[in-house]
Design a protein around this nucleic acid. Structure first.
Lengths: 141, 141
DNA sequence: TTCAAAAGTTGGAATCGTTCTAAACAGTCG
DNA sequence: CGACTGTTTAGAACGATTCCAACTTTTGAA
């Protein structure tokens, strides 16, 4: 966390208390929060926090490659501070998002008709299913 | 196309001229249009067409499993009348979306830490790259 | 330490895609 | 040919995100 702070300062990013709180909230966070999740959490310590600040900061972090924007949920964006390439599992019942740290690239050869019209450089997989929590609920219902 | 019409009528869906025009526009369409694309195209023949009709019809089609909603573009939804399971390639420069008709499921084993918390039933892959059109433009620029 | 430039913060307004609403309208079945 | 019921429409409403203009803060240099 401390070295992260240095990193941001070096990149010429001003470190305001709000930003530090957002960074802290995101650090190691595997919940794939939305802007609103972040806003609500950080607002507890900084009651005057505005959405604009959350979005500004997220945008800066995304531009720096420190946070990824996930286009997984049709309703809103989610953010992931883990920028190592990985995939996601989504519970179709509750929306919970989990991580899948496997590199499948080698196994994803593309047919010639695709490589003919696209030069592909990366991939992202969404796995869909039901999480154990929801499965349990369903059984007892 | 004619049998599609029968199919919809059987499912108790009223076939209005607007709907027929939307169905016709979607039939065999591989461009992954947005609601606005559809609206603009169909409005030419039905100048009074409203967005609500486009969204209503799309919703009905999605519910019937005749159209898929794609959560690929963070800005807006795209729709795909091809409901056979397949994946997509997205040009990161122009946004063009292509299809990938390969079933990779067998090759996508999940680690135990994932299967422990999710029962996964399907997957969808986004491939990212640059389409030949954009590549060409870039070279000549 | 002090200061000014540059960047960040704020609340509210604005925007954009999408959904809702209420009234007018039109397929469908008998 | 009706009537029942679902559909269309224009416009209002909505929710997520972005923009704005005024104010505040961080930072690097003196």
């Amino acid at each position: 966390m401390q070295k992260q702070i240095e990193k941001y300062r070096k990149k010429g990013m001003k470190l305001t208390p709000q930003r530090l709180a957002i960074l802290e909230y995101l650090d190691g966070n595997t919940a794939h929060p939305t802007a609103e999740d972040i806003y609500r959490a950080v607002k507890k310590k900084h009651p005057t926090l505005s959405f604009a600040t959350v979005y500004n900061t997220l945008q800066a972090l995304v531009n720096m490659g420190e946070v990824m924007e996930l286009t997984i949920d049709p309703e809103r964006k989610h953010f992931d501070p883990d920028t190592t390439p990985h995939h996601h599992v989504i519970c179709t019942r509750c929306g919970r998002i989990g991580d899948v740290f496997v590199d499948y690239s080698r196994r994803l050869e593309l047919p010639e008709e695709v490589t003919r019209s696209f030069t592909v450089t990366s991939n992202h997989i969404d796995f869909y299913g039901v999480c154990k929590n929801c499965e349990r609920k369903r059984r007892t219902k």
